[in-house]
Amino acid sequence: MTIGVSRIRSQSAPAVARSAERLRLSAEYWVPVARDLCITAAAGSRADKRRWDGLIASAGSNRSAKGFTDLVVWNGSLRELLQAILDSTRPDTPTVPDITEQITQAITSGRYPVELVVRTSRIAEDLGVPRRLVQLAVSDLAEAGTVVARRHGILAVDHSGPAPGAVYVATRIRAQIAAGIYPPNTALPTTKDLANLFLCGVPLLTAGLRLLADDGLLTLHDAQGGAVRAFVARSLPHSSNTVSADRETSTFTPEQISATTRKAQTQWKLRTPVPATTLHRQWMELRAMIRHALSSRVTPVDPLPEWDLAVARATEVESAPLPGPPWLGVWHTACLASATSRLLAVSEVPDDL
C-alpha cells in the first residue's frame, strides 16, 4: 500500500508542478492589477484596504503547492481576487466609503434609529448593494465609534445625549410607576422580561432604566450575567389612567384584532416605514380595541395578578400619546398591539367586542 501511494505521488508531482506554474503566471499578471485597483477602490476605507491586502497575499505568486490540496486552495484564492477586480471595475458598484456615507445619513435621518439593532441584510436590501460591502462599511463605522457591530447587524450610537429609544423606555416606565403598576420599594420585572414587554433589546431597556436611576426614581443592583435589577426608590404623584367609556365605540371581531395587532408588531420587527396617516389610523384603531376589550370583557370571578397587570399596562399604553418621530411611532404602535394581545390572552371576551 505504501509503495502504491508513493508511486501515485511521484506520478502526480509533474502535474502539480505544471498547474502551480500556471497559477504563478496568473498571479504575476493579476496581483499588480489588484494593487493598482486597491489604491483607488479602497481609498478612505481601512476595512476594504485590509480585504484587498488579504486577497493579494492569499493569491500571491510566491506561494508554493506541494499537492492537489494546495492547488485547490491557491486556485480559490485567485478566483476571489479576480472576482474582486471584476466587481471593482463595474461602474454600478459603489465604493465602501459611499456605503458608509449612506448608512451615516440613514442614522442621522432616523431611518436607522439610534440604539436599535438594524440587520446588515436589511441595509444591503435598502441600499441595493452586496452584503459583504455593507459588512466592510460597518467595520469602518465601528472603528469610528458611530455604531457598535453586532453579530447580524449594527447598533447606532449617539454620543451627544440620551438615545431617543432610551428616553421612550424611561418615559413609559415612569408613567407605569405613576399609575401604581410598580409601587415604591418593589422590584421591576427582570430586564429580559421588561425587554419582552417593550419589544426591544436588553441593552436599550437597561439604558432607559439608567436614565430613571439618574433621576433617583430607581435604584439598580447588579444581577447575574452582567444584567441589572431595578427597584422603585420613590413614589410619583398618582396618575389615574382610566379608559373612558364615553369615547366613540366600534365593533371588532377576533380576526380583525388578530390581523391588526399582528401587522403592527410585524412592522416593528421588520422596521418597515409607515406613512404618518396610516400610522395614526393604526394607533387610533388599536386604542379603540383596548377600550372595547375592557368595556366588553368578562372579568374572572377572582381576578388573577396577571389580569390586573394586563389591564393596568393596557390602560397606561392606551393613554400614552403617539410619539412624533416616525420610527418611535411604529415602535409605540407595536407596544400598543402587544398590550392588546396580552390583555385578550388573560381575559374572556365575547366573539364580537
Rank of each mutant, 00 (worst) to 15 (best):
W52F: 04
N185T: 06
R24K: 14
S121C: 07
D308H: 15
K49V: 07
Q176K: 14
G180D: 04
M289P: 11
T333M: 13
P32C: 06
Q282R: 12
F68A: 09
G4R: 10
L294E: 06
L127G: 11
L155I: 14
L116R: 09
R131C: 09
H159D: 13
G153I: 08
E348Q: 07
I290W: 02
G4Y: 05
I85E: 03
V73H: 08
W268S: 07
T251S: 06
A47M: 08
V243E: 05
A264F: 08
R210D: 13
A163I: 10
Q256V: 01
R271A: 14
W283L: 01
P273H: 07
W307P: 02
A142D: 15
P303I: 02
Y112T: 11
R132L: 00
T95V: 01
L197N: 00
H332M: 15
G60W: 07
D215G: 00
F252M: 00
Q256T: 04
V202L: 04
H159K: 09
I39V: 15
T253S: 11
D87A: 02
S121M: 03
V147D: 13
V31R: 10
A42G: 03
A288D: 09
C38A: 07
L353T: 05
E125R: 09
S77E: 12
T340D: 05
D351H: 10
S235K: 11
V147R: 06
T219H: 01
V243A: 05
K269C: 05
K66V: 01
V228A: 06
V157P: 10
A27H: 13
T146G: 14
E143C: 06
S347T: 14
A195V: 13
V349Y: 00
W307V: 02
V5D: 05
V157D: 11
V298I: 12
L218D: 01
L270H: 14
M284R: 15
A207T: 02
L328N: 03
T340K: 05
Y168S: 11
V157W: 01
R131G: 08
A230C: 06
R247E: 10
R63V: 11
A334L: 06
A310H: 04
L336G: 14
S12L: 15
I257A: 05
V134R: 00
G329A: 03
S319Q: 14
R291T: 13
N75L: 05
V148I: 11
T120W: 00
P326N: 04
L133N: 05
V274G: 11
P97E: 04
G324L: 15
C200W: 04
A17D: 12
T260W: 08
I257K: 05
F252Y: 08
A207Q: 05
V73I: 14
W283P: 06
R122Q: 15
T108A: 11
P94H: 10
D215P: 01
T278D: 14
R90F: 00
R9L: 15
A57N: 10
R297Q: 10
G324N: 12
A13T: 08
G329I: 02
G165T: 10
